[in-house]
Design a protein around this nucleic acid. Structure first.
Length: 588
RNA sequence: GUGCUUGUAGCUCAGCUGGAUAGAGCGUCUGGCUACGGACCAGAAGGCCGCGUGUUCGAAUCAUGUCAGGCACGCCA
């Protein structure tokens, strides 16, 4: 289905052509003066110079072509040359009927779906998730869902930090505490235990301890590097221990991400591509891409058009070890081999902008990717506290994600029980659902690239531009529909009718914008557009609701039309919150 | 120093890619409750869109200069 704007633009372009003007001028936009009209066309003003006529005159000529249009109820040419358009009720209603019948409410099926990898999450094993991981998870999940809804083949990859010195540190600390573990006995040749010798809680304590000690104690750090080396060179005991660490961590991470309604298709990590590095390095050297600089191996990525200095992309450190860039390049190579993506989107802190610029250029220059493969860096801003500074706990530490989530859930729980009587368990469940909407909507309603202020009171409010307000609107619609069913009505029989009132028409117009909004949210990788849209839609619904008694309406036809409208509104709202990554409860 | 980025109402943010009178929410003030769910709705006040110059019939939007904040600039990730 074409979008409403596209359809109207065709009408307008025909009118311009019939009046003797260039088609291009007939572009339609949503009205920015809703008090005057619903849509507008500014082409007459743009064409005035070219045709040496007054814009108003052109607009009048074009308007004359549309006087008996079946599409527009009213076409007005007004000074200085605007074409003000009012949509015909019949046309509008027909469009909504088509939307209702369409599986995706007007989103065109795609002939050639793209394969898109969304790289987000990026947690490190053995370290608890903290607030810094929240945005990547929330935004990445939504980007993934939006692209998937549009019909593309989308793969979410968590890209675990599961390699390197941090692993050596943990092993060193474990060895200090349990030198008798079989994992550290080089002469041991039997099977290693299947059960991990530690819990996630212990692991989360071990890592910071080890990290601290390594900074104070050079010999300790030496041991950690030695352990890292042993792990990377495949020493059996270390590998077995590493596998335990991964297993325990991933189990915990899955639980935490599940609480956020975030799921990954791939749980690949840095360790998965280590074996590709030597081959890749040889390739880069042999093809003359990489050269030595201050003992390190680098690829120059500066281009003639650059206005700034772009440092070369480092492939190997001067001690021969690989680093972040190396792993990322190898990951790109791995994805090209395994998945053949058309597009890779990285949802990462925007401070890593320059690094990714280097990596992308390097991948392109060295032909690790195909020329047509798109690489996008979707950098997000910092989540700040009410003071505008990076979000911290009361005592100034890094806030654990679990704790943040728990705080919001508690806040929501107390709000819910103070408003409605319900069993403890049910209240908890609803509170968690609503809390998630508060958190995600609060984040996603801001442009991803900007820093934003995390204000728990504002986000958890049921009023205003918040997740809970959206959910409340959905729940209210569900409640009406349910009551209708309980009274013996059949929702399968309701049909849309032409609008009879202003707020009804305005709600219908909002609904028609769904596909255009979703297209641009996808094109621009901008979940905040979805938020802005559902807020407007929820408002349009509430206006309509406020002045319309639906269930008590005597006129059966009217009531049926309204119920159909409610049904469509609910479906659109639910579709939108689904791509944002949260859902509505049955009641709240 | 170089580069990137942000600056819109008291606060938090939009602004559909250059259009008419710059919009929301919160907060403030006024009005509407035996409720298809009032966790809502209606209304008011509140803005040299950081500042200057330029392009254009027309600029919050484009260009340029400038001020202020944030961030990044080879062996961390």
């Amino acid at each position: 289905m074409k979008t409403m704007i596209e359809l109207l633009t065709i009408q307008m372009q025909d009118a311009f052509e019939r009046a003797g003007y260039e088609r291009q001028l007939g572009k339609i936009a949503l009205s920015n003066r809703p008090d005057l009209c619903e849509f507008q066309c500014n082409g007459a003003m743009a064409g005035a110079k070219q045709y040496k006529k007054s814009p108003l005159f052109i607009a009048q000529e074009v308007a004359a072509q549309l006087q008996d249009s079946q599409v527009f109820a009213k076409v007005e040419a007004v000074a200085p040359g605007f074409l003000n358009l009012t949509l015909g009720n019949h046309y509008l209603t027909d469009y909504l009927c088509s939307m209702r019948q369409d599986a995706k409410f007007g989103i065109e099926p795609i002939d050639n779906p793209l394969t898109i990898v969304v790289d987000y999450g990026g947690p490190n094993v053995a370290k608890p998730l903290h607030v810094g991981h929240l945005r990547s998870a929330i935004i990445g999940e939504s980007v993934k869902r939006i692209a998937r809804f549009m019909g593309h083949h989308v793969i979410g990859d968590i890209h675990l930090g599961d390699w390197g010195l941090q692993m050596g540190l943990i092993m060193t600390e474990l060895k200090e505490r349990h030198p008798d573990f079989v994992y550290f006995d080089d002469s041991y040749e039997g099977e290693y235990p299947t059960e991990p010798p530690f819990t996630i809680t212990q692991l989360e304590e071990i890592y910071p301890t080890a990290s601290r000690r390594s900074k104070e104690d050079a010999a300790y750090k030496e041991c950690a590097m030695e352990a890292t080396y042993r792990l990377q060179n495949g020493v059996r005991g270390y590998r077995a221990l590493w596998a335990h660490i991964i297993k325990v961590s991933v189990t915990d991470l899955k639980k935490n991400y599940a609480n956020l309604n975030v799921t990954f298709d791939l749980w690949k990590g840095e360790s998965d591509v280590q074996s590709m590095i030597p081959g890749m390095v040889t390739y880069l050297k042999e093809n003359g891409y990489a050269h030595e600089s201050d003992g390190a191996l680098v690829v120059d990525v500066i281009e003639d058009t650059d206005t700034k200095e772009i440092p070369p992309c480092m492939i190997l450190k001067s001690d021969g070890a690989s680093l972040y860039n190396t792993t990322d390049l190898a990951t790109i190579l791995d994805r090209m081999n395994q998945i053949h993506p058309d597009h890779i989107i990285y949802v990462v802190d925007k401070r890593q902008d320059l690094y990714f610029e280097q990596v992308f250029r390097c991948a392109r220059k060295t032909k690790l990717i195909k020329p047509e493969t798109k690489l996008t860096f979707l950098g997000f801003g910092t989540m700040n506290g009410a003071d505008g500074k990076p979000f911290k706990t009361r005592d100034g530490g890094v806030m654990r994600l679990e704790n943040l989530i728990r705080d919001i859930q508690e806040e929501m729980y107390s709000k819910i029980v103070s408003n409605r009587e319900m069993p403890e368990e049910e209240a908890r469940e609803i509170a968690n659902t609503v809390a998630l909407s508060a958190m995600k909507y609060g984040d996603l309603s801001n442009q991803a690239s900007k820093n934003y202020i995390f204000d728990i009171d504002r986000f958890t409010s049921f009023e205003g531009d918040t997740g809970p307000y959206i959910l409340y609107t959905i729940v209210r619609i569900k409640s009406i529909l349910q009551k209708y069913t309980e009274q013996g009505g059949f929702l399968s029989e309701v049909t849309l009718r032409e609008p009879t009132g202003e707020s009804e028409k305005s709600l219908m117009l909002s609904l028609t914008q769904f596909n255009a909004m979703m297209n641009s949210a996808y094109e621009e990788i901008a979940p905040h557009r979805v938020c802005a849209y559902i807020y407007e839609l929820a408002n349009a619904f509430n206006h309509f609701y406020h002045e319309t008694k639906i269930l008590t309406e005597e006129d059966k036809q009217k009531r049926s039309g309204w119920l159909a409208l409610l049904l469509l509104t609910k479906d659109i709202l639910e579709t939108c919150i689904d791509v944002l990554g949260f859902e509505a409860p049955e009641k709240m």
